[in-house]
């Protein structure tokens, strides 16, 4: 059985924040259509890992390629690559001075150079899909956290990315809003989107992940399919981590 081609490849990636070694010789391959969920304790480097893939964090050694192309240095080439890599942040980061609709159309207009009419049409279709079309003319601050995060997903999807990165997308949400965001993500995964998801939502990991990556202390400790990982983790640290979070 032929496996799909690799889309995101991290090869021996290292990074320090001052004296702190945040990524230790990290190698990871994400194949087209695969959903990889990265879990681990706070400070394990999982968010940093996620942010290196579109170079919001630079790396010191190793290589990262997206769709066969090494990450370019700062400049037009990098901007072009970022347009193909969707990102959803913990704190939403919707453009505060623009309406919900404008948040989604901005990239279409300015990066993809699509005309106003078509951009709005496509943006409305996406807002419809994530269930916030009725809020299109409001400013982000007028929406609930869950709604804002769904707009942020629509904004990233508008660029028709090859891969979507989710950096703890539900960590800043009230509990009752977490599911509305996870539902959108689950649907996206089912449609075959390639996804790298950093999260603490173990339910989502079990339900939607093709593979779970467990990080601790800046290194990947264990990789497995969700069933194996959650029922029979190999490493002591993963067992310890799971025992702490799954007992609640």
């Amino acid at each position: 059985m032929a496996q799909p081609e690799p889309l995101v490849v991290l090869d021996h990636v290292d990074k320090h924040f001052g004296a702190l070694h945040v990524l230790k010789d990290v190698s990871l391959t994400v194949r087209r259509g695969e959903v990889v969920v990265v879990i681990g304790p706070s400070g394990s480097g999982k968010s940093t890992l996620c942010r290196t893939i579109n170079r919001l964090e630079t790396i010191e050694s190793g290589t990262i390629t997206v769709d066969g192309q090494p990450l370019p240095a700062e400049g037009k080439g990098l901007a072009k690559l970022r347009a193909d890599v969707g990102m959803v942040f913990q704190s939403f980061n919707l453009f505060a001075h623009r309406t919900v609709l404008q948040n989604v159309t901005l990239g279409l207009r300015k990066v993809r150079k699509i005309g106003a009419g078509e951009a709005e049409e496509r943006a409305m279709a996406l807002l419809e899909r994530v269930g916030v079309a009725s809020q299109a003319d409001k400013l982000p601050a007028q929406l609930s956290g869950g709604q804002q995060q769904r707009v942020a997903i629509a904004r990233a999807l508008a660029m028709e990315p090859k891969v979507m990165l989710f950096d703890e997308p539900t960590s800043a949400l009230d509990p009752e809003m977490i599911n509305e965001v996870l539902d959108v993500m689950t649907a996206l995964a089912a449609e075959g989107m390639t996804m790298v998801v950093v999260t603490h939502e173990m339910g989502f990991a079990r339900r939607a992940a093709d593979r779970v990556v467990f990080m601790d202390g800046g290194a990947i400790v264990e990789e497995a399919d969700p069933e194996t990982f959650f029922t029979a983790p190999k490493s002591e640290r993963a067992r310890d981590f799971l025992s702490k979070i799954l007992t609640h």
Partner: peptide
């Protein structure tokens, strides 16, 4: 985060500054 989100959708440095950061 505003600038990061702008860069993440592929806006250039100039566009990020002119369309997202300076207006705010």
């Amino acid at each position: 985060g505003q600038a990061e989100a702008a860069r993440a959708i592929g806006l250039t440095f100039g566009q990020t500054l002119g369309l997202v950061v300076l207006p705010q």
